[in-house]
Amino acid sequence: MNDLYGGKDPRDMPNYSIGDAARYLRIPQATIRSWTVGRYYPTTEGSKFFQPLISIPKNKPRLLSFTNLIEVHVLRAIRTEHEILLDKVRSALDFIDEQFKIPHPLAQERFRTDGVDLFIEKYGSLINASTKEMIELEKSLDTHLKRIETDEKGLGIKLYPFTRSPEEDNPRILVFDPRIAFGRLVIDGTGIPTSNLAERYRAGDSIEDLAYDYDCDSRSIKEAIDYELQLPAAA
C-alpha cells in the first residue's frame, strides 16, 4: 500500500485542504481551521491563542491527511448535538489519549469498541450533560463511526461521508480511500472520482452517457453527481 508514497502510509499524506474538508464533511471552514490549526481569540487581558485539537502535518500550505479527515468527521458528531465547548472537548480528548496511549485515537477501531463510553462519560461530566443529552451524543457518535471502515490493525482506511439527510439513512456509495485515486472522493469499488463525473455532467453529458463510459451503474453515478452539485463552490 505504501509503494507510491516512498514507504509512507498514504493515510498520513497531506492531501486535503481545509476548504475541501469543510465542503465534503459539511462543517464550517472556520470550525475545521480552529480544530486543526488553532486561532486567536479576544479576552479581557488581550488576544490569546487556542491550540488545535487535531494534530495535522506541518507542511505548508496546511493540509489534512486522511486520518485527520476521520478525526474531524468524528468530532463533528459532538458538534451535531452540542454547542462546542472547546475546552471541555480538549479535556475529554486528553483523557482518551491518556487511556489509549496511541496516536490519533479517534481514527482507531479501539475508540469505537472501548473509547466511546469513556469519552461520553468524561465529556458528559465536564459539561453536566443530562441523561438525554448523553444518549443523543452516543447515537450521533455511533452514526458517524459506522461510516468508517478499519484495516486489520484497527486503523481507519475508508470514510463514507454523509451524502443525504437524514444522516441515519445514508447509503455507502461514495468513499474516501487513501489507497485509491490519491484519496479523492470516488464511487466505492470503482476508483471513479466524483469531481470528474460532476465536471462532465456540467459540460452536458447525461447520467446514462457517464454510466456507459465508466461501465458503472446509473444509480451510483447519480449519487455522485447529486452530492457534488449540492456542495458549496470551492473557495
Score class of each variant (00 low, 15 high):
residue 53 L to I: 07
residue 113 T to K: 11
residue 160 Y to F: 15
residue 120 I to P: 02
residue 83 E to C: 02
residue 114 D to F: 04
residue 65 S to N: 06
residue 163 T to H: 00
residue 29 Q to T: 13
residue 114 D to K: 09
residue 128 N to L: 12
residue 71 E to G: 04
residue 134 M to T: 15
residue 10 P to K: 07
residue 9 D to M: 00
residue 118 L to H: 04
residue 95 F to E: 11
residue 15 N to M: 14
residue 51 Q to K: 14
residue 128 N to G: 13
residue 36 T to H: 02
residue 169 D to M: 09
residue 171 P to D: 06
residue 17 S to G: 14
residue 215 D to L: 12
residue 169 D to F: 13
residue 118 L to Y: 02
residue 30 A to H: 11
residue 97 D to Y: 08
residue 221 I to R: 06
residue 221 I to A: 08
residue 184 R to F: 00
residue 205 D to A: 10
residue 6 G to E: 07
residue 192 I to E: 10
residue 131 T to Y: 02
residue 43 T to V: 11
residue 226 D to G: 07
residue 120 I to C: 11
residue 178 P to R: 08
residue 39 R to C: 05
residue 215 D to H: 10
residue 80 T to R: 11
residue 191 G to C: 06
residue 29 Q to A: 15
residue 194 T to Y: 05
residue 219 R to S: 11
residue 178 P to V: 02
residue 153 K to N: 12
residue 82 H to A: 12
residue 159 L to S: 08
residue 83 E to W: 09
residue 220 S to F: 05
residue 32 I to R: 11
residue 183 G to M: 06
residue 14 P to L: 09
residue 18 I to Y: 02
residue 205 D to Y: 14
residue 45 E to L: 14
residue 45 E to Y: 14
residue 217 D to R: 12
residue 72 V to Q: 02
residue 50 F to E: 15
residue 140 S to V: 11
residue 105 P to D: 01
residue 73 H to Q: 12
residue 12 D to A: 10
residue 60 K to P: 01
residue 73 H to R: 09
residue 229 L to G: 07
residue 70 I to R: 01
residue 72 V to E: 02
residue 29 Q to F: 01
residue 229 L to Q: 05
residue 206 S to K: 05
residue 122 K to W: 13
residue 92 A to V: 15
residue 204 G to W: 10
residue 17 S to I: 09
residue 41 Y to H: 06
residue 145 L to I: 04
